[in-house]
Design a protein around this nucleic acid. Structure first.
Lengths: 341, 341
DNA sequence: CATTGGCACTCACCACGACGGAGTGCCAGA
DNA sequence: TCTGGCACTCCGTCGTGGTGAGTGCCAATG
């Protein structure tokens, strides 16, 4: 019974603190939220909550502030799902529907997500590893040079220049193109790579011998290029300006992290499929520097097959329910769009 | 004679202020720089400089600070070219040489430029308008759907999905591919578009009629897509953290501008070819919000043919000589790399 | 036994005033 | 034309005291 009220108090503290950005005291609490008890009672509860490590006071005789542990409890047990307004929903769908290609989808997602949450948004480009090969095109550019274009099921296009050791013959090229496509098209990346390796090893007598190897190498390179796994779009950095206080301690490391895409990827973490939103609060993450920032992320991809991750990075003091629904919603819309394409 | 010394004083003020970030007084000036005169003399000079609008004092009885006009004079007449250290040069070249494609070149340029200048770096992707068509590839994806891939001389690849109203015939497709390439390859974008338009208007009797129009439309769209003109890479935002003071007034609008690529493009301005570095100081720019920021930019591209612009955005109080040489150097290296590709 | 009102206490925050010091402008002399 | 001297101006800092929000504890109450 009292336990329940204590949780209500914690929730109220979190909500107030997130809204006002100021330590919240017992009196203000009972006034703003309609808990039907006196400030003194709340004070007792707060003392217990503090003992248990859910809240702290910045200094004696100040209000209370939630700790990471407090936010954690709040997110895990006290969050009520906050549906998006119709206007917001429409905004998301119309904005994302206007996208013309994969790049554009990602860009727009970042934008919409950062505006929705008024936070820094991060969207990882769909990873290669899970996608399949839609088509491979080989284009002769010069007698001894061709361009290999790799088109993936996600709509991503990778291209590589290939230098050859013998002049190109159109027929051989056509043959090679045909074989490569027969081998790779429809395959998942990983399988396509191994299948192509086989193709690359032609008997020296075959007319394909001089061409196959470099082309296969280039394609395999493009497929296993980890650089493209690390591609990320970031947006809404201007929202960092709202931090105001705690600039050096919070914004600087975050700005640095935003440039280090590797760090960002680690922050976003594993893609979690199926509408599950992951929340990492403050020091739970691997970077001390970012002890004051939280990450709200989820996986996305066609058929809820988590190809990549998108999310939001912000101060631990953030509107978790709102952010979580926004992240979930955008992930869902993007997934649907990838489905259609 | 005195005129000369006055300029020396101005230069000293600018250099000191840039270094220390604090208003500089007459005494400190004569101590740090070896002008062989007394503080009183310097004071007289400063009074004149102030009358002429080159410097101000933030308040009575404080040191002097350069005005925009002062920086302007400094940049135009007092700047001594500061050569880059060998180490820096090598760093730039080795770092940029590792790039594997156009995207990578741009990304790396941004990075190197921001690290070199410890400022926010902005690099515009090479514009379509000046580049030529290297090759067009048409790939059948489904009976009524094909992918048009446009390869440009800069190495950029644009692709468009094309939906058709009749099933594809391989021969016709080959024919179309041939014709399109005959028409467009080697042409400058603008000419290619008009030439293709002609190709699009086939007599209804021609077997090409059903296909040509949508394909030509897609290609023309890709070529004149202004979205790709606006592509920009930004890096080094973490350097904004060094602003420290004047946060709201300077950093916030700048962060916002960095997200608005249109604004950034306008800031970078016209591409200036041939090693000319443009400097726009504070309120000289079109945005009141950015009155405290300067832009140092230059054009780049193969054969000094300015395809696009790159530069640096920072506080008016910045190390202009150093920044200018860094910008010039990076532009030169990038141009060379584009030349080779 | 949980809840409540009362009460003394603790600090952060703010306004105020004093003061030191860096820097200036001006003037008379070299 | 330059220099040394001098009075003056303010900014920034530091201590000081008052105010108020908030707390912890305790005794009383239902």
């Amino acid at each position: 019974m009292q336990e329940e009220r204590r949780l209500a108090v914690l929730r109220a503290i979190v909500e107030d603190y997130v809204a006002t950005e100021e330590p919240v005291g017992s009196k203000a609490l009972v006034e703003r939220h309609g808990l039907g008890v006196s400030p003194a009672t709340v004070r007792n509860d707060m003392a217990v909550l503090e003992d248990e490590g859910y809240i702290t006071q910045p200094h004696t005789s100040a209000g209370r502030v939630p700790t990471d542990k407090g936010y954690r409890l709040f997110v895990d047990r006290l969050t009520t799902v906050k549906p998006m307004s119709v206007a917001e929903k429409r905004a998301v769908s119309t904005f994302l529907d206007g996208a013309v290609d994969l790049d554009d989808v990602v860009q727009r997602s970042v934008r919409v997500l950062s505006q929705l949450t008024r936070q820094v948004a991060v969207v990882q480009y769909p990873t290669l590893s899970r996608s399949t090969v839609r088509h491979v095109e080989l284009v002769a550019l010069a007698p001894r040079r061709l361009l290999a274009v790799l088109i993936l099921s996600t709509g991503r296009v990778e291209q590589r220049l290939v230098d050859l050791e013998a002049d190109l013959d159109d027929d051989v090229l056509a043959d090679l193109r045909l074989r490569v496509n027969q081998t790779a098209t429809g395959q998942v990346i990983a399988e396509a790579v191994t299948a192509l390796r086989g193709l690359g090893e032609q008997p020296p007598t075959s007319p394909l011998a001089v061409y196959a190897a470099p082309v296969v190498d280039a394609l395999a390179d493009a497929m296993s290029d980890h650089r493209s796994d690390e591609r990320i779009a970031v947006g809404g950095a201007a929202n960092l300006a709202r931090y105001g206080d705690s600039f050096d301690s919070a914004v600087r490391p975050l700005l640095e992290a935003l440039e280090e895409h590797v760090v960002l990827l680690k922050l976003l973490g594993e893609a979690t499929a199926g509408g599950m939103v992951t929340v990492r609060i403050g020091a739970e993450g691997p970077y001390e520097q970012l002890a004051a920032t939280s990450v709200v992320a989820t996986g996305y991809g066609p058929q809820d097959d988590a190809l990549a991750t998108l999310g939001v990075v912000g101060p631990t003091r953030m509107d978790y329910p709102g952010t979580m629904t926004a992240v979930r919603a955008v992930a869902r819309y993007v997934s649907r769009i990838l489905d259609e394409a």
